[in-house]
Design a protein around this nucleic acid. Structure first.
Lengths: 231, 231
DNA sequence: TTACTTAGTGTAAAATATACACACTATATT
DNA sequence: AATATAGTGTGTATATTTTACACTAAGTAA
């Protein structure tokens, strides 16, 4: 590499806002830091981008090293570049988000000793976070709240088979708003992206609900049309 | 500053996709580079972020130095972080966009000798661009195309007083789609964010159209409600 | 006065969104 | 066996929004 570019005493980092849904609660993944600064504080999983890796790659690697989660597809949503966001120098961070299924048991096993543990925490019950991570989280939450209003992304958070009530609860949590059951069902079923299964919920002490699956094929078709303004 | 953070032989940069609308055409601002690499190539206005300035600030400064445009409010839309996007080293760039009024005469007077000139170029007639700037432009265009579908941002591109036909043309250009005049007018007027003026177009060799103004107050109110899902 | 060019307008049909309440069913409890 | 409990599942009328579609009015230029 030539050196026409000025050197720059700064680093890029990645921070991840990973959403999960469990127990009727929307959660995000937090780590407990094991290093200064902010040792023993809670923080979003985040670390420094290596010199020779793309930021997308860095995001995947860092999430894996800090939480043990692999093969999570993330999208970037904002880059935070204020001068004093990190106490030790100039750090610009690209924030990524993802929504994943918790299947009851996504194991969290940090590889790096940079963190002492990783846990799922309800977004309604977040501790104080290191750095400007509260700001980053808020923007990530805003992002999915917006997105869910025009794309049915909620499925990514649910188990493969889910009931309409679960789906509705998830919408309600993300939108912070009660929805009408009949209208919600009508709307969702009208999208035509749900496949009704021949199965019912099990282990509940009341009438069991039908299970549904998300139909990816039809979903992609739906998104050809998108965007208002007919003619 | 302490030095616990690793040094990193890399730079942050900013690239700007600045949209304007003139003559029924959607344009963006390009510079001709006066320095290697890509000397004499066309490129998006972009340069390196200083150590002690926020990226938002850098965006403003860089746009000014490279094109002479001041006080343009920009939003970031994506960060490009592939490893080999710059031939001289690792450069991660935060891309910003803005939509501005051309008022016929936004003067372009580059301050920096890093560029030899700056010009407005129709998006339908772009030359080959330096670095990965074509990719950056595409994503920026996609961004405003999406955005205009749910937010009436088009006003930012028009002169203060405009006709409904001009507004419609702009929508058509951004959406690459013909729209129906009656439906378009109905919809726009229904938003209630246009103020009809007591003035007409001048200097046209046909029936002059009424002029309208964009009503910012009402616009913000409209955006309280936003987001579907009634109850 | 005529020809030309763009402005400006209405309506019916279809699709979508909203508001709203009660009976059904599976299980657990007595 | 009877009952309580808790969540499932459904229909309809109304309002709103979206779509398709074509002609007349106004101003200018010759």
């Amino acid at each position: 590499m030539e050196t026409l570019l000025p050197k720059f005493d700064s680093v890029f980092s990645i921070d991840c806002v990973i959403f999960g849904f469990d127990d009727g609660e929307l959660k995000i993944l937090l780590i407990e830091r094991n290093k200064e600064p902010f040792k023993d504080w809670w923080a979003l999983p985040g670390y420094i981008v290596e010199q020779d890796e793309s930021i997308d790659h860095a995001a995947e690697r860092i999430l894996y090293e800090l939480t043990g989660l692999r093969d999570i597809y993330m999208d970037q949503f904002y880059t935070f570049g204020d001068v004093n966001r990190h106490p030790q120098g100039r750090v610009i961070t690209v924030a990524y988000y993802a929504m994943i299924r918790l299947n009851g048991n996504k194991e969290l096993r940090p590889i790096s000793n940079y963190v002492s543990k990783a846990v799922w925490t309800s977004v309604n019950d977040l501790p104080k976070l290191a750095f400007d991570h509260e700001k980053i989280f808020s923007r990530g939450f805003e992002k999915i709240r917006n997105k869910i209003s025009y794309q049915p992304i909620a499925f990514e958070l649910l188990p493969e088979k889910f009931t309409l009530t679960q789906l509705q609860q998830l919408y309600e949590v993300i939108l912070s708003k009660k929805l009408d059951k009949r209208n919600f069902r009508k709307k969702m079923l009208n999208y035509g992206i749900l496949k009704e299964l021949d199965e019912k919920q099990k282990g509940v002490s009341y009438r069991a609900a039908k299970l549904y699956k998300f139909d990816k094929r039809k979903y992609s078709k739906l998104f050809q049309k998108e965007l208002t303004f007919g003619k």
